[in-house]
Nucleic acid binder design. Structure first.
Lengths: 237, 237, 237, 237
DNA sequence: TATGAATGAGACTTCATTCAT
DNA sequence: TATGAATGAAGTCTCATTCAT
């Protein structure tokens, strides 16, 4: 683990907000010799430009072709850098995947927390969180897909770390449901755990059917899913 | 495509019923000269023994390690046959995956149809089908997992075929929901399509969290999921 | 070497005269189970039908694709027999090639001898032989091509045998030239050996440019080549 | 197609003059760590050393054993490099063959042009060119042999390219003959095309009989062949 | 900070041949 | 006379990674 890359990536994670248009790769020149535009502000933020571009390209390619089917050669060629450059910033191909997961998990955890701690009534907080995770999953469909398809490619240690983080996320979400169950707002004949798994199964599956050029906007799907979740939580008479 | 394998596999698909234990590999002798037990009933079912064993082993390994991480060498070693034998029955490693999908799809389609055509009331038919697909998915967790993780490994043509079959399945299921919507039994403010994607997302995700040694039996999960589905279908006041 | 095949093939070599249309393969049913028409006369000559068909098919495929690029599977499938059947009649794939060479050599040697021993004047005998070898080479272009491209595939022992037979052929031809040189009819400033190699280089090369749908008939090419040979043999002033 | 190899090979084709001894493989150290002698002039020509050595070795082995009978493993072992190195410079085994053809064709075309454009009388120009192509074919007997035996191994596209280049060569040569026919120096009762095919058949066949330890030097054979060609071109009375 | 030639293990697949029936 | 399942060795090629520069 080279200190140089641990720094920028961990301290300044590449931010890609919900709805942020990924511009990766499209502006990269395909000259093959790896030279890129050395604009004026490249000097200032250029240091992070290469790793960021690599992550963006890797995310897209992993989603499109799967982790194993994507070669390092393909990644660096698409990103317009050399292999040496990639290995300068990342320890390995696996490391790229790890960083992708890390970013996704950090972002989703942050977002959930933001909705969970508002002063709104519980039902609203849960519905908002549910809707938001759908919207943000759609905004980052590639990450969502990779999450489902490529988890098993991670080496055991990192996989365990990812799962632990994921579990914390689920527990936070489940906490909201249990709070409602205790308050008598939600049905109690179903374990909150099962409901969480039920709902997030649906969420993680979005990448396999959602089309951005389809009839439903991300927000509409988010609202539908949140409604379905809330409906299924209504106490039975 | 050797005629020999197209025949038995297509006409007499290897049956692996719900809960049927796969006995792959464990009873195969590793003598190296390829002779296997020539018992009395070998004559009757022995012909399909090798391809069946290969499919069973491949299913398990693909689920455990992923398609790309599983080598043909590993498959044949585990199944106790030679590579040549595998390529005698299957065109390629991809072909193995195709056959696995084919079997899963045929079985699930058959099961759905069985529940859909009974004389029971609509709500019962739908609940039964929903519960059953959960139970059978758990009974074949490996197939379910492969379905999610390895679809993108299939070559485009076969992938299209699988998706078409899958769509037919979804349409059949959706038909039941739409029937209930027309009858005023189910809510109509959500497209049936969305509900189907919501529910099957949860179903396909089972392989990522269900543990057979956990607290819940397959039937319990099936009932929970079916209940949650039915609840979310209740008309809104 | 099974006695059964040594017999029929050696004693009754499959005859394919100059200009004889090869009908091989075209009447073979592609049922895949290897059953062929069991007509009335099949009983009488059926015994030679399979090896003959195999040789004809192999000749065509070797010429089209090369020896190494043609698999035994392809040969037997095209011939409509099984692998077992092929190995019943031939020792190996190499053996097929040997038999092809054997037939070609026997035939060409026979033809040359026929022209060499007539009562015609020497110049006529030589010109006829030269023209004939062109015509018969074109009539069996596949064999000619295989001769050039696949000789090195033969195992050393058989290759030596083929070369010895070939040398005898050349020596017989050279004998005619030397006869003319002694008689003062042909130039003597060139070794007969060189002239033979010169001429047969041209002959063996026919398969690489002659097209049966081109402007020149086989006979025309034969006459041209014979003329060129005779011209180059004229004594220098 | 890596840019690195397209460059040096195409722009600076590995030169192997007539009679130049190929020194392939023999001086390569088998240290296994890949470091080779880093002499002073390595800087200048060292960059092309590996691909050049590979080409030389492949040429020899293809000629000795045939293309299909020569494994990549054998090539790289003889050249003293790893398989990875070979695939770093060449796209495939086929690509090696292509490069071999390319070099031969370029060289022969260059040589013909040199003889065709001199101020000498036509007969001398043609005789010189004819003699030279024999001498240079003998100097590169391996290439000549491969040309005959392995053309059909090339993939169709490249084969077409080779044939087109070859045709251009033939047309240039034929142009000289036609020039003489128009001038009344050569016979006109034979199509120039046929004469070209006749002569080059003999030339391409050299590799199958010429022995460098035989009685005739390359130059002697060249002179004989040129004489025979010129004789056969004399007008008939 | 970046290069790119080179590594070497391992991947999938083909194929001529055998043998019990 | 013929079958076809099975063998097992060998084939071509890919790829993540390293290292001298």
């Amino acid at each position: 683990m080279l200190p140089v890359r641990e720094g920028p990536l961990t301290r300044c994670p590449v931010q890609r907000g919900v709805g942020a248009e990924a511009t990766e790769g499209k502006t990269v020149m395909e000259t093959g010799n790896g030279q890129r535009n050395a604009g004026s502000d490249e000097q200032a933020e250029g240091a992070a430009a290469v790793p960021r571009r690599l992550l963006a390209v890797a995310t897209r390619l992993f989603a499109e072709q799967g982790f194993d089917r994507t070669s390092v050669q393909e990644i660096v060629a698409t990103a317009g850098v050399t292999k040496g450059a990639m290995y300068h910033y990342f320890d390995s191909k696996d490391d790229l995947l790890s960083e992708i997961y890390g970013r996704v998990l950090r972002e989703q955890t942050d977002r959930l927390e933001k909705f969970a701690v508002t002063e709104a009534p519980l039902r609203e907080r849960l519905a908002s969180a549910a809707s938001d995770v759908v919207v943000s999953s759609i905004a980052n469909l590639d990450d969502t897909k990779i999450f489902m398809e490529s988890m098993h490619q991670l080496d055991p240690e990192k996989r365990r770390a990812v799962r632990a983080e994921r579990r914390r996320y689920h527990e936070r979400f489940r906490g909201l449901i249990e709070e409602g169950q205790r308050a008598g707002e939600f049905r109690t004949d179903k374990p909150a755990e099962v409901i969480v798994d039920f709902f997030f199964g649906a969420v993680h599956h979005l990448a396999f059917w959602y089309r951005s050029d389809g009839e439903l906007s991300a927000q509409q799907v988010g609202d539908h899913f949140a409604d379905l979740l809330m409906s299924s939580l209504r106490p039975v008479r």
